[in-house]
Amino acid sequence: MSGELVTVFGGSGFLGRYVVRELCRAGYRVRVAVRFPHLAGDMRVGGAVGQVQIVQANVRNRPSVERALEDAWGVVNLVGILVEKGQQSFEGTQALGAKNVAELAAAAGVQKFVQMSAIGADDDSDARYAKTKAQAEDAVRKYMPNAVVLRPSILFGTEDEFFNRFAEMSRFTPFMPDIGGGKTKFQPVYVGDVAKAVTASLENDAAAGETFELGGPEVLTYREVLDYILKEIDRPRWFLPLPFFIAQPLGYVMGGLFKLWPFHEPPLTGDQVRMLRSDNVVSPDAKGFEALGVSDLETIEAIVPTYLWRYRPQGQFHEPKGA
């Protein structure tokens, strides 16, 4: 056990829970920095007694970030949003938040830094999500030049917001949105494998200052993903063609309507449609899992059925046709 203290910003989120557990397995002491500590008490069971500490921090609030960084050897910044809600904007949460964490980490003498980005991060992107992810990378590089940047494709796992979202949608609609012809390519990656990559990034000195793109073993189109989900939950559905020029304004309308009802996220936003215009796969010349020493990646077929069963007509008692 190394015993070094690693502060994980956004540690109670989907990816964060896996990262915290993986860091605990590797012997680190983990400080989970979250906005609402009273909702993250279960994080303490991720490690041994006293191994996990929970503190309040908001990446937009610099004093709270400073407190969370006290005596930290390493930092992992996982903070990110898919949909803007309330005061959580892409610019404030992703771009400014990463700048605050990196700048204050440098001032605190933090030795290791891992920034979670995303495939498609681009300063010139029309999608604000992708643009602010790139701005976050730039800010981190400015203050922590030796930081490791990880760019995963779409994450899958029990609590994911991709496979679960479309499976849930199929329960209430007779059709599924076939956006842009369904040709956009994805390389879904298991959230647990990305968590292993985070730990490897902290421990591998050769990774310092590098960017890694993380994709799973299989490349699928958007339409192939929907076909897989519907077959797995045994809910045949029609596909409604939605060209980009129709899907994008529809997404903006949905995003605007759901801002009036902030308790639920919209099924689609205009910014997400912009992201769908580009493939979400690992670049041919990019460094990936192999360069970090992470192998034996989990497949969709091995993991996704373990949680999609709940969307079948009779749940776990329903055997899909052809299974």
Rank of each mutant, 00 (worst) to 15 (best):
K183G: 13
R235A: 13
F245D: 05
E224P: 02
E265W: 04
G255C: 02
A207H: 12
L240M: 15
H264A: 15
W238L: 15
K231A: 15
V198S: 04
L230R: 08
R235P: 05
G192Y: 05
R237T: 07
Y228L: 14
T269K: 02
I246H: 04
G209I: 12
P267K: 08
E232Y: 08
E218K: 13
Y190S: 05
M254Q: 13
F186A: 04
L226T: 03
T184V: 13
L214S: 11
V219Q: 12
V225F: 10
A208H: 01
K183C: 09
W238Y: 14
P236Q: 13
L226W: 00
L230T: 07
N204C: 11
L260S: 01
T269I: 07
Y190L: 00
N204D: 15
S201P: 07
Q248T: 09
M254E: 13
P267G: 04
T199E: 13
E232A: 14
L250P: 01
L220G: 01
A247T: 09
P266W: 10
T221C: 07
E210K: 14
Y222V: 06
F239A: 12
W261C: 01
E232F: 09
F245G: 03
P188H: 08
Q248P: 00
T199P: 04
T184M: 14
Y190K: 06
Y228W: 11
F212E: 11
P249F: 01
K183L: 13
D205M: 09
D193C: 03
P241G: 12
L220V: 13
F263H: 09
K231S: 12
P243W: 07
P241E: 14
V194P: 05
F186L: 08
T211C: 04
E224D: 05
L214A: 12
L268W: 13
A195M: 10
G256P: 04
V189E: 09
I246A: 15
A200N: 02
F258K: 00
I233T: 05
L202N: 04
Y252P: 00
W238Q: 11
E224Y: 02
H264N: 12
F212H: 10
W261G: 02
P266Y: 08
L230S: 09
L268P: 06
V191Y: 07
F186S: 01
P188I: 09
G215Y: 09
L242N: 08
G256Q: 06
T221H: 05
L202F: 03
G255P: 05
G192E: 14
G256A: 10
V191N: 05
G215A: 10
G251F: 01
E232Q: 15
V198M: 02
E218C: 02
F258Y: 15
P262V: 10
L260T: 06
W238T: 09
R235L: 14
